[in-house]
Amino acid sequence: MLSSIQDLGRMDYLDQAIPVSGAMDQLSARIANKAVGNSDSDAVIEFTYAAAEFKAETEILIAYAGDGATLSVNGEKLQAERPIFIPSETVIKLVNNPDGARTYLAVAGGWNVPEVLGSNSTYLTAGFGGYGGRTLKAGDHLKSFLNLSESSSIILRELKGDKIKYLSWNIPKALLLPQDRKTIRVFPAKEFTWFDSQSIIGFLSDSFSIGLNSNRMGYHLEGNKINRVEKDELLSTAVFPGTIQVTGSGNLVLLMADCQTTGGYPRIAQVASVDLPLCAQLKPGNSIRFSEISKEEAEFLYIEREKELARLTLAINSRF
């Protein structure tokens, strides 16, 4: 169980080897924020799996998204991807959702943690950001910012009362994602041709399973080995979340949010940004396949996804 405060990460210190960090599944984090009228970059709680319980000491407006858990009150499930009014003294419990790994909880106004190096994201390895640079644990107190956006204030006014209340609409994440959530689209990386053709064909057709040794830094993928033909050593160079490296023993490593900023293993492919939220929901033992697209297609998908998200924001803002 690992819960930490995250936002969309920090980019300005990559040259000092400070990772991007931020929510692993940025799509879910953004949807949770949008649903309460926040800005996409407000701080959210990232829960990995379930097994958490918290109490709202005051009345709050929340929303959650993601596939690691469902939220429930007295055994009753709370609806995801929409604003929910929670009266004070309500105890909310996370219940495991077998579909995925990570769930994001947004509160109107955003979680109030001090900004470190331009972001609210927790970076555990160096122990800074988020809630005291560490994961959340029992007994912690979290506050939200009190100044709400106009949309948040209107939603809150509409729902405020003495019991749990929802709005009738939601932001369906499923509509933004492909049906098949276990096929990850990738485009060839710089060292794609460093491997023999059999290995490349295998990479694009075999299935790989997520290893136990997987975390916010990256996933070890178990499957057929990738054979290298190019014997040149790669000088350490920049990598980024979504980079798939091939280790010296021919195994694949998929880099995720807290990955190092540079690496020396050859890179076979880069996961299309739009599919990183799918990767963020994978658990050890899950089996995935890779399918090749061009980098132009990856760019196109990125732009389309951002356009759709911008339309959602517009729709919410025009309604409230």
């Binding site: 710089k190 920049a238 990598v239 980079t243």
Partner: peptide
């Protein structure tokens, strides 16, 4: 070359 949709090397 392209590193990601948001970076070139």
């Amino acid at each position: 070359y392209s590193l990601s949709e948001q970076a070139v090397t």
